[in-house]
Design a protein around this nucleic acid. Structure first.
Lengths: 205, 205, 205, 205
DNA sequence: ATCTAAGCGAGACGGTACGTCACGTCTTGGG
DNA sequence: CCCAAGACGTGACGTACCGTCTCGCTTAGAT
C-alpha cells in the first residue's frame, strides 16, 4: 500500500523536454559560432545535441527560427541604465556600449540574422524588435531626459533622432566600409548633436 | 611601333555567348522578383533561361554571386547629379532618390544580399561598391560643395557625416521598425544638418 | 542465460522499406531490358520506381552494383538437381539448362556485367559466385557422381574439367562467333567426354 | 579527257594530320593502361594528346570505338606458326602463348573490352573477330594438321573443338576463379585431347 | 605566289547524370 | 506518450563528360 506517493507520475516519459530543448539551443549556438549563421542545419544540430530531428521541429519551424531562438537565448548584454547628471555623457556611454556589443562576434551574427531573415513572419518581426528595441528604448529615455534638461531640441521627431544615432552603426556593420569602434560611437553622438550645418537656425522646421 | 606588350593575350576558343549571359541574368532577376532572393536556385535559372547549369557556373561561383550580379545588372537608377545653387537642396533631392530606389522590394533584397555575402569575392566587392557606395560618394560630392559654400562645417569627419545621412535608411530597411519614404528622407537631411542639440556652439570641437 | 553477446545489436530507427527495395530492383530490371545494361542510370531507376535517389544509394554504391543486384534478384532458374541413374545424362541436361538460361538477352547482360565489375565489392563477389559459380558447382557434383560410377576419369583436375565444359559457353557469349543453343550444349558435353584425340590411352597421365 | 576516273575524289583543303591521329591513339592507350578501359574519356584523351575534341570525333564516334582502335593499334603478338613434326606439341605451345598474351595487362584489357562492348555495331563485331580469330585460326590449322596425321578425330565439329580449347581461357579471365598460366594451358590441351570419360568408344557419335 | 578550303587547338555551349547534402515527414522500438 | 534513431521522397547542389558549335590560326593543294 505504499505506492500512493508518486510525485511526478502522470506524463509518461515527457520530462526530457527541457533537457532536449537546452541541448538543442546549446548545439545551435555552438554551430553558429563555428560556421556562421546561415550555415546552421537542423541535421547538424540534431546530431550534435543527440536529439531526433522531429524533436527540433516540434519547437521550431525551420533552421532560421531555431537560429533566431538560439541567438535570443543568451541575451545581448544591456548597457547599465545608470543615470548621471549629464544625459549627454550617458548617451555617449550607451552608444559606445552598443557599438562594443554589436561589433563582437555575437553582435555581428545578430545583425546578419536580422538582415537575412526572409518573410516578415511573426518570429522574424519579434526577433528584430527584440534586438533593436533594447538599445533604442534606452536611447529614447536618455534623449527625453536630455530634452527635459533643455540639452536637446524638443521639436524633433524622436524616431528620426534615434535612427540618426543608431543607424550609422548597423550601416557600417553591414557595408563594412569603415571601422566600428568606440571612437566611431563618440563621433556619431557628437556630430549628431552638433549637426552638420553652419546655419544657426533654431526655429522649428 | 612597339606592340610587344600583350597583357590580355587574345582569348582562344569559342568566345562566350552574350546571349546566354543576358538570358541568365534576366531569368535570375525575374525569379528573385517572384520568389525573393535566397529562394533563387541555379537549377531554376538554368531551366528558365534555357541554358545548361555549367554555363552559369562558368560565370558565377554560386547562387549568391549570381543574385548579386543580377541585382547589379539593371543598374540602380542614379540620381541625376545635377547641381543647383543650393547644395542642401541637392542633398535632400539625392537622399529622397536613394530612399525611393530602396523602398519596396528592392530594398529588402539588397539588404539581404549584403547580409548573406560572406566571401570577399569580386562580385561581392563590386556589389557593395556599386550599390552601397554609389549613393554615398554622390553625397560626399554634394557635401563638399556645401562646405565650399560655407553651408556645412569643415571640421567634421566626412565619413561620419555620410554615415549619419545614409545609415538611418539602411537601419530602417534592416530593422523594419518604421517606414522608409520621402518624408523620412527629408527628416534625415534636415535633422542631420541642424543637429539634435540646443547648444549653439559653432566652434571647432 | 548469458545473452551478453550481441553481434547485430538490433538496428535502431525506422527499418528499411522492403517495398522501396523491391520497386527499385524491379525498375532496374525493366530498364536494363529496355536499354541494355550500361545504359542504366540511377536517375531513371529512381524516377520509375517512385523513389528518391538517396534511397538507392543507401543500398548500392553505384549503378553497376545495382545492375548486378537486379540481375541476381530474379534468380536464374536453377536446373533441377534431380539425379537419374545416368550422371552423364544429368550433365547434358544441366548444360542444356545453363545454355538456355544464358542465351538471348540475359547472356550478354551477364557477360557485360562480369567484364565491367572491377571493384571487389560484396555485390560483385556475390554476382560472380551465384551467376557463374552456381552452375559450375552443380556440374562438379554431377561429375563426382560420374567418377564414383567409373564413368569419368578420376585422375583429372576437376577445375580444369569444369572449365572445359562451361568455358566454351561464355566464350561464345563473349566473342559471339557462333550460336549458343541446346545443340551446342550437347556437343560440348559429348566432345569433352570423348576427347579430341584418337589415342586410346586410359592410363594415368 | 582523263578526268573521268575519280575513285577518291582528291580532297581539297588541308589533309588530316597523321600526327594528331597518332597522338590520340597513344594517349588513349596510356590512359587505358592507367585507369582501365571504360574509364577512358574523350576529354582526357584530348587534353593529354594536346588535341581538340572535334578532331577525335572526326575519326571515332565515341569513347568505346576509340578504345577499341587504340587496343587494336598495337596488335597482340601472334604465336610463331612454326610447324614441328608434332602438331600436338605445336598446339600446346600455341595455347601457352595465347594464355601468356591474354593474361597480361593488355590482354585483359582486350578481354574486358570485348565483353563490355555494347550494341553489335560493325566496329565492335570487327573488334571481336579480330581479337578472337587470330589465335583461333592458328589453332584450327594445327588441329587440321593433326587430323591429317591421324592424331585427332575427324568426326568432330571443329568449331566446338576450338571452343573447348580456347573457351576455358577466357572463362577464367572473366570469372577470375582460378589462375590463368602456362600450367593451365597444358592442362587444357591434354585434358581436351584425352577427354573426361573412361568409355573407350571410338565410334562416331 | 597567291588563294582558299579544310583541318587544327581551344574552349564555350545545351545537356544528362553523377553522387551528396539537407530538407521536413514518417515509422519504428524503448523508456 | 514522448523520444532517439534513422529511412523515406524531394529537390538542389556543384562536377564531370557528353557531343556539337564557333572562333581564329595554320597548312598545303589548286589556281
Amino acid at each position: 500500500m505504499s505506492r500512493h506517493i508518486d510525485p511526478s507520475p502522470r506524463p509518461r516519459g515527457r520530462p526530457r523536454s527541457t533537457k532536449a530543448r537546452t541541448a538543442i539551443l546549446k548545439s545551435a549556438h555552438d554551430l553558429m559560432a563555428e560556421l556562421g549563421p546561415g550555415r546552421l542545419t537542423i541535421e547538424a544540430v540534431a546530431a550534435r545535441a543527440g536529439v531526433g530531428k522531429p524533436t527540433i521541429y516540434r519547437y521550431w519551424a525551420n533552421a532560421q527560427e531555431l537560429a533566431m531562438a538560439a541567438l535570443l537565448e543568451q541575451k545581448l548584454p544591456q548597457a547599465s541604465s545608470r543615470e548621471t547628471p549629464s544625459p549627454l555623457d550617458d548617451l555617449e556611454r550607451q552608444v559606445i556600449h552598443v557599438v562594443t556589443v554589436f561589433s563582437g562576434r555575437r553582435g555581428r551574427q545578430v545583425t546578419q540574422m536580422m538582415a537575412a531573415s526572409e518573410a516578415d513572419s511573426e518570429v522574424s518581426k519579434a526577433f528584430r524588435n527584440q534586438v533593436i528595441m533594447g538599445s533604442r528604448e534606452q536611447g529614447r529615455a536618455i534623449l527625453e531626459r536630455a530634452q527635459a534638461l533643455g540639452l536637446v531640441r524638443t521639436d524633433l521627431d524622436m524616431d528620426v533622432a534615434l535612427d540618426l544615432i543608431y543607424g550609422p552603426i548597423f550601416y557600417r556593420l553591414l557595408a563594412g566600409h569603415a571601422a566600428v569602434d568606440a571612437a566611431f560611437a563618440t563621433d556619431i553622438v557628437r556630430t549628431a548633436l552638433k549637426g552638420l550645418g553652419t546655419i544657426v537656425d533654431r526655429r522649428t522646421s
